[in-house]
Nucleic acid binder design. Structure first.
Lengths: 125, 125, 125, 125
DNA sequence: GTGGTCTAGACCACA
DNA sequence: GTGGTCTAGACCACA
């Protein structure tokens, strides 16, 4: 379910975090649902258990999942958390756009890119 | 001329690269113009000469500057480079926006962020 | 596996680059295969890790290998790279021959040299 | 008469040496003819006098020119020297071809390049 | 352990 | 002085 891009510079544990958040935002993982155990997830996607552990802990710290000792990890029911995630994404966009602007990228080109991305999405739905 | 953000996670040599690219895109550094020597730049911004070397060599590999042993480093006359840099920036924006969209960030919020960034810029001019 | 000529004027990191390219072109290193770690390679050939780093990063920039922090460095699966390397070598030959011709070296002598080089090679196989 | 390629990696004084050798081999500079003074040559081609000095000394060491204190530098009448120059050129060709061969460049492609170079030359004559 | 960044400092060829 | 190479060694994030 989660694809790791080994060539990418974004750390594997980051990709894991974003992957799970995405699956939740798509409703593929619903509140209360149990996640694969650290070991299962690790062997599934061919990753060191430490890496999965790190991702789960970050997700728990952000309130997206919760862990029950001896039982496993579950998608958190908490709804209001989502806004925090969106804000993080928004900040990343802001930072990248600011850098591009400083390089001289005109606003029109940024707008065109944004349009393209959201057009792709509405088509694949 | 170039400000280093020591708190930032982006490596110093990367900030240097971006700084010089930016100065060139603003026309503050024009083709043929000589850059400060590796050592001068290093002591200017309080960094080890090796770090500046790394940045200069990366810029040379990208065709943005060229270096002549014994003479110095110069802004490359190559014109077509600029568009390449803009395309790189555009790609980064596209990638970040796509990720944000996958997280569920609505288009309106992305647009608002873009507007804000470019509004900031026009005000500071 | 890689021999460094300490007398040579071509920098050690350059020799490393060429050595790895050569091993790949011989099929001794196949796509996906893991290279010795920076530190292992360094101690193998008696060189500072920084020097190996420089070579590996140059190879990555040329798309010949790719590195994953925490995992290691691997021969890139990219196929089309090989032809690029041959073209670079071809260009170097062309440039050197052109210079020799300008010095007045007759074609027959160039041909004889080429014959000799390839004869050596077929004998050592 | 002599063009310096500042982008090239071959040192300026080397380019100077090769330039004069070439002019001699073309008969543009004949035995006995006086060369421009170090200073004149330096300002002609926009180079540091030290650099011209170095080139002249190397040429004298190789017997291609000779200097008379207080009078200037002259093209040497010595004919047999030329063979040495050809041998140097030949060695450079050999080295480059050997490297290309090690990269996997097939002999046919080397031969084709050599043919092309000498074909160009016979056409421009 | 693995790649990546950075400092401090030496040494070289070249201009 | 100027770029380029290299060593020795520290420190970091990541796996």
């Amino acid at each position: 379910m989660i694809q790791i891009d080994w060539q990418s510079r974004t750390p594997v544990y980051e990709q894991l975090i974003q992957g799970i958040v995405r699956l939740k935002s798509f409703g593929i993982l619903s509140p209360g649902e149990q996640l694969p155990s650290v070991r299962a997830m690790a062997s599934d996607i061919g990753v060191n258990p430490n890496t999965v552990q790190k991702a789960y802990q970050a997700l728990e710290a952000r309130g997206i999942i919760y862990s029950v000792t001896g039982k496993g990890s579950f998608i958190s029911p908490n709804e209001s958390i989502d806004e925090e995630i969106l804000k993080e994404a928004e900040n990343r966009v802001g930072k990248t756009v600011r850098e591009a602007a400083q390089m001289g990228l005109p606003k029109e080109r940024v707008v065109r890119v944004v349009d393209t991305v959201y057009a792709e999405r509405s088509m694949s739905e």
